[in-house]
Design a protein around this nucleic acid. Structure first.
Lengths: 351, 351
DNA sequence: CTGAAAGCGCTTACAG
DNA sequence: CTGAAAGCGCTTACAG
């Protein structure tokens, strides 16, 4: 006979059955309305009451054993870009729980054997995996395919692997920014890139911006190589401030470097920020809270991405053979005081 | 006969047994070295090879069924203080995985029935729970006790419930700050509190600071009621800057309000920050990255807290009857340019 | 409508 | 040392 678990894991369906004077099968049928079988109302009530009295909850592990579905979704996170991804994880977890799923988080400590850890993770029979980190997406996807577990990547599309993914429209965000900056009358543009970023989202932003400018007949835009950091933004800003004919619209690839550029211009340039010169970038949860830097920025629709990811995963869990999909969400432009207001707002101010 | 799971969940121990020409029991014994039983070397090798060839991994769900231990640890997070807790979650997950445990995250979406969700969560037979959010600690703890699942709270000690917890030494951090500020020659002190915070960590900080000052014979310290936000810090700072005899050391209860105070003083006060007046606060991951605000601050030893939490949980999982413990970690003071340097550093500068 | 029984994939006494 | 068997808590055909 097998040894009982160490913990008194509590009330089972058999206990409920005994108390209600029915068989364990009947208990199961009452508490699993998905079965097509009907249970006599009187028995049903007795079971329900017994279950309530005993505080019975079906053991999800046992249910997983027999149904083959754990309702556990693996969520893979990484160390990069901490701040941004916290909110993501929060939103994802909420969405998953709302869909009746549980989030099991996987994260690989530095210097660990990723595949080794991933195997341990997959042993829990996850029904699906959502990857929020491009760093690990390759490993996870491979193992997922191998095991027939659907994988959805967020902002980490792997073009070659025919994988399911949701992402923000990085290219389109560049277009949006070009439309806006041209629309408020700017003429001399600069894009501050972050060339050393390990993140693959940056090039499309730049390309979209340049393309957007082109559509407005603007063929020149300075592309200033920089980094993602505040410090590198400071340096770029200081150097720009010294120029006699500096750009009047500076679009930064991120949030930190935008803050750096802004601070440098505040200190070293006479031009009025938000009127003579506009500084724009991308939002992360940091910027939102920091009133000191009221920077116009493009924001990802994180909750939209998360809900897309969960929905996509749900359809894949139903139908694993479905051809891979790539869903794209538009980004949103929030205009703040670091850049020129839209014409309508200007009129309102004049009036 | 029960229906097979939808997914082809893969290779089982029986498959390996067949291939290796042994019984399934033997396969299990080879792959579970914890059993006291020895397996003949030759059979052992055959099993190992067959397992390798088939890519066999034991089903953790089945193991949970029979052992009664899931090796899943529930991690409860909340919406408050996003930025801070992300790093925590990351560190916790890493620590858990390093201990051979999996993290299942629980987070309650706004307007959801917490107890309802918690029950769903506990159904997965978690071996223990770590709570990083004081908001939910009460519910979780109650259910945990009811189900005999050990619960460890991080920074959310519930004095009445005899619960296990790890925390940073908030009171001690106030003492540390008093020692430092007095040590570098300050005389007129102010503490900027955040009275509206739902967080219970703030009072001990203030009490520690006042007690620390008292130990140095300083009996007066202005306590300025404020909020946790940047904006409220700005307001406090502006009002202080107007005073002829303003405090020369301003200790803030948080990071955002410290940034606000600093910005206000930069703009509205002539006093040199870091020499004539010191502004200090608490660190979160934000401040670390923002070179623009080089603020002296107290930091929690987050990784220490996480490792304490995981270790404590492990001992509780071994011995659930162990009396409740409260572990306390000292905080760490990092001196930056917003406050006076230590004497030794001053001498170095002079020399 | 309902109960007895099979079986999910494992671990582990029990008997060789 | 090793295999046959029990059993973890469930769901669900199968036979009344």
């Amino acid at each position: 006979m097998a040894e009982r678990g160490h913990r008194n894991s509590g009330v089972t369906a058999t206990d409920v059955a005994r108390r209600a004077g029915v068989s364990q099968s009947t208990v199961s049928r009452v508490l699993n309305p998905n079965g097509k079988v009907k249970v006599q109302e009187e028995a049903r009530q007795r079971v329900l009451q017994a279950a309530r009295e005993l505080g019975y909850r079906p053991n999800a592990i046992a249910q997983t054993m027999i149904s083959g579905r754990s309702k556990i979704v693996g969520v893979v996170v990484s160390d990069y870009f901490n701040v941004f991804y916290y909110q993501m994880l929060q939103l994802l977890t909420n969405r998953l729980m709302a869909a009746g799923l549980q989030a099991m988080v996987f994260s690989s400590p530095p210097r660990s054997d990723i595949n080794e850890l991933l195997q341990r993770f997959y042993r829990y029979q996850v029904d699906g995996v959502i990857v929020t980190s491009s760093a690990l997406s390759h490993h996870v996807t491979e193992q997922g395919i191998q095991r027939g577990v659907p994988v959805v990547l967020i902002n980490g599309y792997l073009p070659d692997m025919g994988v399911n993914a949701v992402q923000s429209d990085q290219f389109g965000s560049g277009i949006l920014m070009a439309d806006y900056l041209v629309g408020v009358g700017h003429r001399r543009f600069a894009y501050v890139s972050s060339e050393n970023s390990p993140h693959r989202n940056y090039m499309p932003r730049q390309e979209g911006f340049l393309e957007g400018l082109r559509r407005h007949g603007v063929d020149t835009c300075r592309v200033i190589p920089g980094g993602y950091s505040y410090q590198s933004g400071l340096e770029v800003g200081e150097s720009l401030a010294r120029e006699a004919d500096m750009p009047d619209a500076i679009f930064c690839s991120g949030d930190w470097n935008a803050m750096g550029v802004l601070d440098a211009l505040r200190r070293h340039s006479r031009r009025e920020i938000g009127r003579e010169v506009s500084v724009t970038g991308y939002d992360t949860p940091i910027l939102t809270g920091l009133e000191a830097y009221s920077i116009t920025g493009l924001t990802q629709d994180m909750d939209g991405l998360c809900s897309d990811a969960v929905e996509l995963l749900e359809t894949l869990m139903e139908d694993p053979e479905r051809p891979p999909q790539l869903l794209t969400r538009p980004m949103h432009l929030t205009i703040r005081s670091s850049s020129r207001p839209l014409p309508r707002e200007m009129e309102q101010k004049k009036g």
